[in-house]
Write a protein that binds this DNA or RNA. Structure first.
Length: 171
DNA sequence: GTTGAGCGTT
C-alpha cells in the first residue's frame, strides 16, 4: 500500500472541514453530505419560489471579482506552480501563494488574479476541487484586501499660524 | 522533513 496516509488526510479535509461559507466549494461537500429522504423534510423551498423563470441554478454565479482565493494548496506548491496551473484558463495577471514570513513556508493558500471575470470563472470552474501537487484545491472568490486607500479629507496641512514675532528690541 | 483553517507583503 503506497497511498494510504495521503488519502486519509484528504478525506478528512473533505468531510471534516465545514466552514459553511463558500458557495462553490460547498457544492462539493453537499455531494458527500447528501441527506437522503429520511423523515418528513419540512424545510423545502417551493420550486416555484425560485427566481428562475428559465434560469437554472446549476451554476452558482458569477464572480464579482477577478481575484480568486485558492485554498487547499500543498505546502510544496509555489507561485509558479499556482500560475502554471491557472495559466491555461486565462491570462493570470498575478498568482501568489501566501507564505509565512516568519518561517518562509506556504500557508497552504494563495491568490490568483485574472484580467477579467470570464477567465476567473473559467479557472474557478476548471480548477475548483481539482488536484494540484497531490492535494485537492478549492477555488473561491477572494475577499477585498483593501477597500479604500484612505480618503484623507484634509489635503493641505495648513496650520495657519504664522508666527510673526518681533523679538526683542530693547534698545 | 509535513499532514491542514483559511483571505495576502508588497
Amino acid at each position: 500500500m503506497a497511498l494510504s496516509s495521503s488519502s486519509s488526510s484528504l478525506l478528512r479535509r473533505l468531510l471534516g472541514s465545514s466552514p459553511l461559507s463558500s458557495s462553490g466549494s460547498s457544492a462539493l461537500r453537499a455531494a458527500f453530505c447528501s441527506s437522503s429522504s429520511s423523515g418528513p423534510s419540512p424545510v423545502l423551498p417551493p420550486p416555484s419560489s425560485i427566481f428562475g423563470d428559465d434560469t437554472e441554478v446549476t451554476n452558482v454565479p458569477p464572480l464579482t471579482t477577478p481575484k480568486l482565493f485558492v485554498s487547499g494548496l500543498s505546502r510544496l506548491t509555489t507561485d509558479e506552480k499556482l500560475k502554471d496551473a491557472f495559466c491555461p484558463f486565462g491570462q493570470v495577471l498575478e498568482a501568489k501563494v501566501i507564505t509565512d514570513r516568519a518561517s518562509g513556508r506556504s500557508k497552504g493558500f494563495g491568490f490568483v488574479r485574472y484580467a477579467s471575470l470570464e477567465e476567473a470563472e473559467t479557472a474557478r470552474q476548471g480548477m475548483n476541487a481539482k488536484f494540484l501537487d497531490g492535494w485537492v484545491i478549492f477555488v473561491d472568490p477572494a475577499k477585498p484586501r483593501e477597500q479604500k486607500p484612505a480618503p484623507q479629507p484634509d489635503t493641505a496641512s495648513h496650520t495657519g499660524f504664522t508666527t510673526n514675532k518681533t523679538v526683542g528690541w530693547c534698545g
